[in-house]
Nucleic acid binder design. Structure first.
Length: 590
RNA sequence: GGGCCCGUGGUGUAGUUGGCUAACAUACCGGCCUGUCAAGCCGGAGAUCGCGGGUUCAAGUCCCGUCGGGCCCGCCA
């Protein structure tokens, strides 16, 4: 080894020890005959003193050193003189008196600050990701991610789970996200697909009798990106045989408690056991199936109060089967007209036509709708919304889905403004009883809300012919602070039921055989009842790391246009490469 | 596919009712300096204002297009 100790580990107890260190120049302070070098390695920073009198050769080398040079330093640990300790550094009570300084490798001036946590344009960070990753924030995040994965393995291994790898080159399926496909050289005109998740494979591992499986699995989906979505991402994928939904939820709940204790012990969990909401409840109370439960400000239904109001927007919405719902924002009655108008911008993107407000001030109610509402109606609204003096009630009247989405997002915005979304609070929750199917307008058929292998609540099979939209799924989503961090279900394990499901989804028997024949056949050889879940590792780590984007917890992420700015991917390939793959690129339109 | 925001020395920003010889901080280079820790002091170099076109006597600033980044809608079983 080129070093005997790490920079970060040295303490008073090492005083008098001869050490050899190796690392990067974090900062250099040149006082002429005395040079201070803050030497950094993964474990921390230590001050090295190079004295021209005591070590003239070393001093000559240190004069040439610059930020991010890679140095090896031989010297002795000594206590810092009284009054010269640095309380901001864990190693601040000691320093290393250099006897020999070696430049292992010089460095160009970096394109941005590595020794300071200051904002840098993200494109530049991504082009020089290897330098960005050298910065403290990214080191912390990537190491945190490692700790999460380690703890997951510890926890599951101790409970009899077996980690099994599944292939990356699999078969394209029609349902779900757009596949990334890989051409086959050996089979002209045929393609593999990269897995959107190991879903079918892990179910087949249950048929194989492994009973408890997990995998830290890479998943790939060719869809547009978001702050919380990358084309490749990582899931903790998990499946168990002979379990009911409660068993899965209980296990994962325990896993979360273990992770928080091991990895982010400074964070508080808001409620244990985790609250469970049905999908219906979540939509009704929070306007979303991934509610942020760190604060209340729930959606309140006013439809019945204003159904026969003289205020036409209300009456008409109610008559057409729409909803009139509100949130109460404490202490916001003083918002100016301009501020109130600006709030509209937070609901327009979700299809709302407008936002109505009622400010309960000392001098009385202020609202654009006040003159159309009776004092009885205003009183009823105030009671229902529990608005006190100084509170602002924000109302949206529209189709139920628009009201839910718009008001749900407005709730998050107002919660943010009021400082109710504390990153050190973890509000885990379960959302259960999702609808099994939803109607796809464009294709004119039912499609699976979760995926086509999800089992319905058994008694709901009777609705299959009459009212499929009302069938409930044995599905569960794991929600944390307003993010969907996981989802799973009890699966169908009988061939006849799986076939019935494909039928419901408008998949012909031939298609089902061609696409899913392996699964249908496997289910005929004694498939155990089974179920599982997959957790979005990137999202979970981002929440643990207080980051708003999963790019901050992925070593080499892609931009929102799905490019790797460091590697320059995607890129063209040689004509010969295409020929081998039996591919031709259609002329690029522009 | 659509909407919004951003792009100015290496980096982060200011300059956007058109008048600029483009400003500030920091980094960088040189000099001085034996106790600093965001070291300090003195000096210096460094920007065709993302790119292309247009309007104008005059464009960093206005218009059109384009490229790159970000956020969102659609999309994401």
């Amino acid at each position: 080894m080129l070093k005997t100790h790490t920079c970060g580990e040295l303490r008073l107890s090492h005083v008098g020890t001869q050490v050899t260190l190796a690392g990067w120049v974090h900062r250099r302070r040149d006082h002429g005959a005395l040079i201070f070098i803050d030497l950094r390695d993964r474990e921390g920073i230590v001050q090295v003193v190079v004295d021209a009198e005591a070590a003239p050769e070393a001093h000559k080398v240190a004069e040439k050193a610059r930020v991010e040079y890679v140095l090896q330093i031989r010297g002795e640990v000594r206590a810092r003189p009284e009054g010269l300790q640095n309380p901001n550094l864990p190693t601040g009570e000691i320093e290393v008196a250099a006897q020999e300084v070696t430049i292992l490798n010089p460095a160009k001036t970096p394109p941005f600050y590595i020794n300071e946590d200051v904002p840098v344009e993200e494109a530049l960070r991504l082009k020089y990701r290897y330098l960005d990753l050298r910065r403290e924030r990214m080191q912390r995040n990537i190491i945190l991610r490692h700790h999460v994965v380690t703890a997951i393995r510890e926890f599951l291994n101790a409970r009899g789970f077996i980690e099994i790898e599944t292939p990356l080159l699999i078969k394209s399926t029609p349902e779900g996200a757009r596949d990334f496909i890989v051409p086959s050289r050996l089979h002209p005109g045929k393609f593999y697909a990269l897995p959107q998740s190991p879903q079918q494979l892990k179910q087949l591992l249950m048929v194989a009798g492994f009973e408890k499986y997990y995998q830290i699995a890479r998943c790939l989906r060719d869809e547009d990106l978001r702050a919380d979505r990358q084309p490749e991402f990582t899931q903790l994928d998990l499946e168990m045989s002979f379990v009911e939904q409660d068993d899965i939820l209980a296990l994962i709940e325990e896993l979360y408690l273990y992770l928080v204790e091991k990895v982010v012990p400074h964070k508080r969990i808001r409620e244990i056991p985790f609250p469970r909401l049905t999908y219906q409840e979540a939509i009704a109370r929070y306007g979303t199936d991934k509610p942020d439960l760190r604060f209340g400000m729930e959606l309140i239904d006013l439809t019945d109060i204003v159904a026969h109001s003289a205020f036409r927007v209300f009456a008409q919405t109610a008559a057409e089967g729409g909803h009139v719902k509100a949130i109460t924002v404490p202490g916001a009655a003083g918002y100016s007209r301009k501020e109130l108008d600006a709030l509209t911008q937070h609901v327009i993107p979700y299809g709302a036509k407008g936002l109505l407000w009622m400010a309960f001030r000392q001098e009385g109610v202020r609202s654009p709708a006040a003159k159309f509402l009776t004092s009885g109606e205003i009183q009823a609204i105030r009671e229902r919304t529990a608005a006190r003096e100084g509170d602002l009630v924000l109302i949206i009247a529209d189709e139920p889905t628009v009201v839910a989405e718009a008001l749900g997002h407005l709730r998050l915005e107002m919660g943010q403004r009021l400082g109710l979304r504390d990153p050190n609070e973890l509000a885990f929750a379960w959302v259960v009883e999702f609808p099994l199917l939803e109607w796809n307008e464009e294709e004119g058929r039912w499609q699976a809300v979760h995926h086509p292998f999800t089992a319905p609540v058994p008694e709901d099979w009777t609705l299959a012919d009459t009212d499929p939209g009302r069938m409930r799924a044995l599905a569960h989503d794991s929600v944390l602070n307003g993010w969907e961090v996981g989802g799973g279900s009890i699966r169908i394990h009988r061939s006849d039921e799986q076939q019935r499901m494909f039928q419901l989804l408008g998949i012909t028997e031939e298609q089902a055989q061609a696409q899913f024949g392996h699964l249908l056949e496997a289910f005929q050889y004694g498939a155990p009842p089974h179920g599982g879940i997959a957790l979005g590792l990137d999202r979970l780590v981002a929440l643990f790391a207080d980051e708003n984007s999963i790019r901050e917890v992925i070593a080499f992420p892609k931009t929102s246009s799905a490019q790797d700015l460091m590697l320059g991917a995607p890129s063209p390939v040689a004509e010969e490469q295409l020929r081998e793959l039996h591919l031709a690129v259609l002329s690029l339109e522009r």
